[in-house]
């Protein structure tokens, strides 16, 4: 008993004398987690992309080569990258345009019990299963779905058909068109845009907006020169979510859309189905590079200065 307490005392003395040791001990588990599991798996992925595949048996050849990265620039693969980036950009811009007024209203005008109701309204879609949401959208957008029915009842089918006749964004029905994919992406990722925006808008002091008005700024000028710059960190944070989530998703474009591949699907197809892990890994590196570039650009634009 005595010996045990002596040992404990000496341990606590050591820790007290060397505070750095204590910090090291405390920080070691999360550091190991981050270093080995998180970064380790990432580097394993990067390493895979420098291998290549034996084309018949599908067995990977473990010799360093850049051949796999070269394959990314084949027109068909490069199309996939461009298609995904354009979609991610469109979804991000769409989410910002739709999300901003919603977040603004929630931050400024929702009072009392309306505030939690607003939060619930935005978050509720996140609680239901992702797959259920996507499948129900497939039904909503289908040729014989509710949206078509509404257009028909309003005698506006010609409008929808004219829209669907536009190449690239149109198609046989909304559920097999790029527009359909866009709408579902927009719906699914919108909360990730609204919530950070709302948080940043709440922190904008309303005295500033009033001061701007007092000094003769028109509402647009107040928005452009006062509100937007102050809320920009939230917009950027939201856009990082929507952009990166769209870049990586592989389920939505498989269920809704024209079957043209996105990066996530290419990764899934090459890794999961063709066994071409090197090419899948090379594809997976693309969003990492894109996001790094995006963050660098955002930083250069001063988006993080206000944080």
């Amino acid at each position: 008993m005595k010996m045990q307490s002596a040992m404990l005392t000496s341990i606590s003395d050591t820790l007290w004398r060397k505070p750095n040791l204590l910090i090291l001990l405390l920080i070691l588990p999360p550091a190991l987690w981050l270093g080995i599991i998180y970064l380790g798996s990432l580097f394993a992925l990067l390493a895979q992309s420098f291998f290549s595949i034996d084309e018949f048996s599908g067995v990977i050849q473990y010799e360093l080569t850049l051949k796999t990265y070269g394959e990314l620039f084949r027109p068909s693969n490069f199309d996939i990258i461009i298609r995904t980036v354009v979609m991610a950009t469109a979804v991000t811009i769409g989410a910002a345009i739709i999300g901003f007024p919603v977040a603004y209203f929630a931050a400024r005008y929702a009072q009392g019990k309306w505030k939690p109701i607003f939060y619930l309204g935005v978050m509720m879609p996140l609680w239901s299963s992702y797959l259920v949401k996507v499948y129900s959208w497939k039904l909503i957008l289908a040729k014989e779905g509710i949206l078509n029915w509404i257009f028909e009842s309003l005698h506006l089918s010609w409008l929808l058909n004219a829209y669907l006749a536009i190449p690239v964004i149109g198609g046989y029905s909304l559920s097999v068109s790029a527009t359909g994919t866009f709408l579902v992406f927009l719906y699914v990722w919108l909360p990730f845009m609204i919530l950070p925006m709302q948080a940043s808008l709440e922190r904008v002091p309303h005295t500033m907006l009033e001061a701007s008005g007092d000094l003769g700024a028109r509402p647009y000028q107040t928005f452009r020169h006062v509100l937007l710059p102050l809320a920009l960190p939230g917009v950027i944070a939201g856009s990082i979510f929507t952009f990166s989530l769209t870049l990586g998703d592989y389920i939505i474009p498989q269920i809704v859309g024209s079957s043209r591949r996105f990066i996530g699907q290419a990764v899934y197809a090459y890794q999961g189905t063709a066994g071409n892990i090197p090419l899948a890994a090379a594809f997976a590196v693309v969003p990492i590079i894109l996001m790094a570039f995006y963050l660098w650009l955002a930083k250069r634009k001063g988006a993080f200065d206000a944080l």
């Binding site: 595949i53 018949f56 068909s76 693969n77 043209r260 591949r261 290419a266 063709a274």
Partner: peptide, 17 residues
């Protein structure tokens, strides 16, 4: 024409190439 080309070419066809 071996199978690995079938894989990449079919992805290209679906992509409209």
């Amino acid at each position: 024409v071996p199978y690995y080309r079938w894989v990449s070419d079919y992805i290209a066809v679906i992509g409209g190439r």
